[in-house]
Nucleic acid binder design. Structure first.
Lengths: 339, 339
DNA sequence: GTGGGGTACTAAAACGCTATAGAAGAGGTA
DNA sequence: TACCTCTTCTATAGCGTTTTAGTACCCCAC
């Protein structure tokens, strides 16, 4: 069953030493073109494949990068974004015959434990840090472990780790400008947990641009990103006397939940309430009305992350911050001029 | 940086041979309890962790199992189910210090290539086959590769591979009985691609039970599982003169898309049309009205799959078919007695 | 006090590959 | 002929672990 051919088998058959076969198979000098061709032919004939463990033992790379998502198992649901990221990463990595190992854990502490384990077992060559927090503890951990890493979403200024990011403050500004142009005066924001950097950035951008446009300073309500809290926050906002005429949601899941609440309360969307989602996925298109949202090419983003990570693995001192396309506003049926 | 301790380091410090350290760390006889305790203490002190590649080289397991999803990158969206499966699997596997490698590929051919690659590189110890097809080509491939595998969703009769399955024919029967009791006479089925075993089983069960209950024999419409085709199929069904009063969807994504179509056509749900989803996820709860659906503990299912796979790895001749809980019908707002 | 049988350990090989030092031979130059 | 260089290859060590065969020692029985 497991009599797969080794380099020694090939060497015996061709009549050269294992070292020569290794040279030939890895395309490095040390064998004549003639011998190389013979070796490659025999290798193909015997269906030889490198044994990764043997290579890794010699200090080579594991051929795996890690992506850890810290999620409460009960609030799964917003991971569509990461499925696409994963897809984009895999397409880049598989060209280098690497793979992504995605793991779901309960919280940041478990995530950090996993990085320690992975580093000590040489399981992965590098990791992607997502959902960055203010003063994120993971950054120091991966640095001290010597584990190459790239952050997804940490903006501009050269930080401690290389990063791939998009300007979501600018994106939020676009939303506010769009709503202001429609004559919305009261804009609310159903946000994620304030510990996340991107949540804080968006809230700040909303607030700031509301001031610029002379609107009622937009208020952000924190949630845990779950549909339940998104619904609850919406209900609270819409129950006020001076309720907002537009709500921006940090995720499409919460936006859809909020939309359902509005309908249930008899508040017509978009006539009495405009809804904007900061996130795009199939979800925004299947609810009715379809949601106006920010959209971007998540697959391409994943590909860029993978490239940056390969770069970080090759050159551990790299700290480059790669800015990607700013999410574009896609207008659908959920936004309109208020009554 | 990479000066992680090896067994030899521990041996030197304790003053024994590497072999003795290996015995001690793996809990096998050959060392006195006293020495064992000393070795374990030093190992903990030095923060030793096994080097997986070195172990794998000796023929041990890779500590990774594979889960491949064949999906067109554009029709991503129904993978919530698998995210939960993944979570359940990981919790079982991490107790055995194993992990899951999930990979998305374009089609079954690419999936098979991946199995060949994984087997030849010793990358995974086993794989889970999902989305089984009629006369599925993957089964013969993994068998010929000697790659331990478990199928998810292949029913009962001892097949060529061990399996974990649920009785979805029974579940469909429950749905038909429920709708018949509400006096629905015309039930349609927006199904997935007919090449899938579970799709065929459900369609057959619907047809059969419709006959039993004396209803108009329920018709199944095939789709590619995308929201677009789910919407199109719904539109076609609802445009007929004798349109159905209830539609059963094979996925929650299509059910939600179908719901939106009905609303858009001015067909009230549930008064003029009842909607049932064969799948549960957060999606069924955030649309309005919330969807009546079949629900099951997907996390637990993933855990069972992982256990079965570990079993299959330990005993490659195993062919056990483990039946899991039949999905339960959860009634929500999208179903009612027809007008 | 010799042999038998256990226990506690060591030495060395093996897993499959890569890397490095060096050997053998060809060819050129002085 | 002696010396050097270049190419092409071989031999060998090494990566970290497990496993096997073997050794040293002790205890006990005869």
């Amino acid at each position: 069953m497991s009599n797969r051919p080794t380099i020694a088998d090939i060497a015996k058959r061709v009549g050269v030493s294992p070292g020569a076969v290794s040279f030939a198979l890895n395309g490095r000098p040390g064998v004549s073109e003639q011998t190389r061709a013979r070796i490659l032919e025999v290798a193909r004939d015997m269906n030889w494949r490198p044994h990764r463990a043997a290579r890794a033992l010699g200090g080579a790379q594991a051929g795996v990068v890690g992506l850890v998502l810290a999620r409460d198992p009960r609030t799964l649901g917003s991971e569509q974004f990461y499925t696409q990221i994963l897809y984009g990463m895999q397409d880049v990595l598989s060209a280098r015959s690497s793979a992504v190992q995605m793991q779901l854990v309960r919280d940041t502490a478990a995530e950090i434990d996993l990085y320690r384990l992975w580093a000590s077992e040489h399981r992965v060559d590098g990791v992607v840090l997502v959902d960055l927090q203010l003063d994120d503890p993971r950054i120091e951990v991966v640095r001290s472990l010597g584990l190459p890493a790239v952050t997804l979403g940490q903006p501009g200024e050269p930080g401690l780790l290389p990063s791939v990011w998009a300007d979501d403050a600018e994106a939020m500004t676009t939303i506010v400008d769009y709503l202001a142009a429609l004559d919305h005066r009261r804009i609310a924001h159903v946000a994620g947990p304030p510990i996340y950097q991107h949540v804080a950035r968006r809230a700040a951008a909303l607030h700031e641009q509301a001031l610029v446009r002379g609107l009622r300073a937009g208020e952000s309500v924190g949630t845990d990103f779950s549909d339940a809290q998104g619904a609850a926050a919406t209900r609270a906002l819409l129950s006020r006397a001076d309720r907002p005429t537009a709500i921006v949601y940090d995720s499409d899941l919460m936006a859809a939940a909020g939309l359902a609440v509005a309908l249930e309360m008899g508040i017509e969307v978009p006539r009495a309430l405009s809804v904007v989602s900061f996130d795009d996925s199939v979800l925004t298109r299947i609810v009715h009305p379809a949601l106006t949202c920010l959209s971007r090419d998540t697959y391409a983003l994943g590909a860029q992350v993978a490239s940056a990570l390969l770069q970080a693995i090759a050159d551990p001192s790299s700290r480059e911050a790669i800015q990607t396309e700013t999410p574009r506003l896609v207008v659908r049926g959920s936004t309109a001029r208020p009554l």
